[in-house]
Nucleic acid binder design. Structure first.
Length: 599
RNA sequence: GCCGACGUAGCACAGUGGUAGUGCAAUCGAUUCGUAAUCGAUAGGUCACGGGUUCAAAUCCCGUCGUCGGCUCCA
């Protein structure tokens, strides 16, 4: 445990001490350090609100000032149990009632493991430690928010109040942290999305979690699609298009029903006329794979058709729980950068390698450096239950995947027992501005579902075989990927992505000047550059300020001096005035930067 | 879905029981200016929605919806 974690863990104990001094009947569960601080889960009749923080912090200060030693005591299991029964754990002294959560935790400590207590002043807690030497070592701390959490994270367990705080070695470090948080909030995609007019969520008329792309946001969507289409075309993909609905049979066959019905919008019941007179249920698709499988099945396949790479920016709908919705990052309608690669076992390694390369190429374009690939593998003990019973395929594909990852020098962690039912998968994890972790892209191997849909190809030896399927979405969904890009760039998109790429600003509305500027505007727009005009009479300072605020990537200022020399003055957003340059050179530079998608 | 906080003009906010306010944005007019804000005028609100208490509710109470912070979930 790092020193900072020890400080925070110790601060959690001090927090519990303070709460007990105010509310002696508080029952504590777990109080660990976490990424940016610490928390302690408490059960208490009183609802703690931020208004209570000052007096809790007051008590905490007293504890820190008293500079109590954190004393480690190793005791026997029976003694510990007796103390818990008397309510002496996570307590100042014996209480009438048992320390119930600590008792439960104690009973779950494996036999033979040492049981330790930590004391600071009057407070004693069951705790493995370690801690700082003295409460005085907690240099600076602050309570931040209160939330609720289920005991042991299980929603069948009682809800506890989780008091969050943070602690640092000294006040300077803490001030820096809060300043950094303020900066991060300015990057929040919800804030920038509104400022720049990228998207809107109309909960009243359209529905929560279903973003509307405004004109400027739609530009981002279309540029990403263009990138994906070009990249996939070059990699030998073919594009398909599928409806947003499918019959119930589709999801019964895929295995999504009934297990995942809760994550899907409730079905529509249609009265089908003719024979049978029954009702037919249609579901909005929550994923594209089944539709693509039916495309595979639509025509007989030979080994000569493989690998077959079906790509589609498919629109899916997932009924995410209301409390889970989060800006663009967690939505109910989403457009996936989806593709399914059907291949033979022999082709698998090469296909997987190519997919991986595509990921890295994209990350390069976006300058994405802080990410982690999470490789989820199976647990051999659970073959036939949690994982499809194909030990040889699991072993082989996981080895191949691992080799590709190691070979590319990629930052990845391997997580056993987290694979999908039908095969190993790789998720790419990134972090939002405010530090929340998201899966931005996914890449899964599937050796089970194609069989469920009866997919077959005729092999060279005239036998019928089931193809393997690689499911990949390197750009994730438009919603989450753009949400991420907004924060990644803080709204300052590279030229090729910028909703407004160029704004031409004239010094005044002199007709000759306007004609000169219009010529440049027409040239740019003729080349599909998103260029706008600001030819009005407002002071140039004001026009520049407006363009900067709108995060226009390139501002071309033209005045009489430029016109006479055939120049334009170039100003880049956030980078200031670069001075006058020949107009043709500037236009050519803009076109090149866009064509090459320069960062 | 659960716990908590919040919901006032497009945005940021003020308004603690007595006629709804400020700044920016918008619209109109003037300003002809060399790189982050020229001046003036106008318009804009069923104070989320529904109910209740009160002579009187943005303000107090209840419910609903939504947003936010977490938890659970995330094929």
């Amino acid at each position: 445990m790092t020193e900072l974690e020890r400080i925070r863990h110790s601060a959690a104990h001090v927090l519990a001490t303070a709460i007990l001094k105010i509310w002696p009947d508080a029952q504590f569960a777990a109080g660990p350090p976490v990424e940016n601080g610490f928390y302690y889960d408490v059960e208490l009749g009183h609802r703690i609100s931020p208004e209570d923080f000052p007096r809790i912090e007051e008590e905490m200060k007293r504890e820190v000032k008293a500079n109590h030693v954190f004393e480690r005591v190793e005791i026997s299991r029976p003694d510990a149990l007796a103390m818990a029964e008397r309510g002496e754990l996570a307590a100042l002294s014996a209480r009438g009632v048992a320390s119930k959560f600590k008792l439960d935790i104690l009973q779950n400590i494996p036999e033979g493991e040492a049981i330790t207590l930590f004391r600071n002043g009057e407070f004693t807690d069951l705790c493995a430690g370690p801690h700082v030497m003295r409460t005085g070592n907690i240099g600076a701390f602050k309570l931040t928010h209160v939330a609720s959490a289920y005991y042991k994270g299980d929603e069948r367990n009682p809800q506890l109040q989780r008091i969050y705080g943070t602690a640092f070695k000294n006040k300077t470090a803490m001030d820096e942290y809060f300043a950094m948080l303020e900066e991060a909030k300015k990057r929040d995609h919800r804030k920038i999305g509104a400022e720049m007019g990228l998207y809107a969520i109309d909960s009243e008329f359209v529905g929560p979690g279903m973003p509307l792309w405004l004109p400027k946001g739609a530009v981002l969507v279309e540029e990403l699609e263009r990138l994906a289409k070009e990249t996939e075309f070059a990699a030998g993909y073919v594009r398909v298009r599928t409806p947003h609905l499918a019959k119930e049979k589709m999801y019964k066959t895929s295995g999504h029903l009934p297990y995942y019905a809760e994550s899907m919008f409730p079905p529509m019941e249609l009265k089908e006329h003719g024979e049978g007179e029954g009702t037919e249920r249609y579901y909005l698709k929550a994923m594209n794979c089944p539709h693509h499988h039916r495309i595979f099945a639509a025509e007989p396949k030979s080994y000569r058709d493989l690998p077959l790479r079906l790509a589609e920016y498919g629109c899916c709908y997932r009924y995410e729980q209301s409390g889970e919705l989060f800006g663009l990052m967690r939505v109910r309608s989403l457009n996936m950068n989806d593709a399914h690669i059907y291949c033979t076992e022999a082709q698998f390694a090469e296909e997987f390698r190519a997919v991986n390369e595509m990921y890295l190429r994209y990350f390069g374009i976006f300058g994405l450096e802080k990410y982690q690939m999470r490789f989820s593998t199976h647990d051999p003990a659970k073959l036939g239950q949690k994982f499809v019973d194909e030990p040889e395929l699991w072993r082989k594909t996981e080895d191949m995947v691992r080799q590709v990852l190691v070979g590319s020098g990629i930052n990845f962690v391997e997580v056993p027992n987290e694979a999908a039912f039908y095969g190993p998968k790789i998720d790419v994890q990134v972090w939002s501005a405010i530090g929340r972790e998201f899966t931005i892209a996914t890449n899964q191997v599937d050796f089970a579902v194609p069989a469920k849909f009866g997919l077959r190809y005729r092999d060279r030896d005239n036998s019928e075989k089931v193809p393997l399927c690689i499911h990949r979405a390197p750009l994730g969904t438009h919603e989450r990927f753009i949400g991420f890009l907004i924060e990644h760039y803080a709204g300052n998109f590279p030229l090729w992505l910028a909703p407004e790429q160029v704004r031409i600003v004239t010094l005044n509305d002199d007709p000759a000047l306007v004609e000169y500027a219009t010529g440049i505007l027409k040239k740019l727009r003729g080349e599909m550059v998103r260029a706008e005009a600001d030819f009005g009479t407002d002071p140039v300072k004001a026009k520049i300020a407006e363009a900067e605020k709108a995060r226009v990537h390139t501002m071309l200022v033209v005045g009489p001096r430029d016109m006479e020399a055939g120049n334009v003055s170039v100003r880049l957003h956030g980078k200031g005035n670069l001075g006058a340059k020949p107009k043709d050179e500037v236009v050519a530079g803009i076109l090149e930067s866009i064509r090459e998608r320069k960062g």
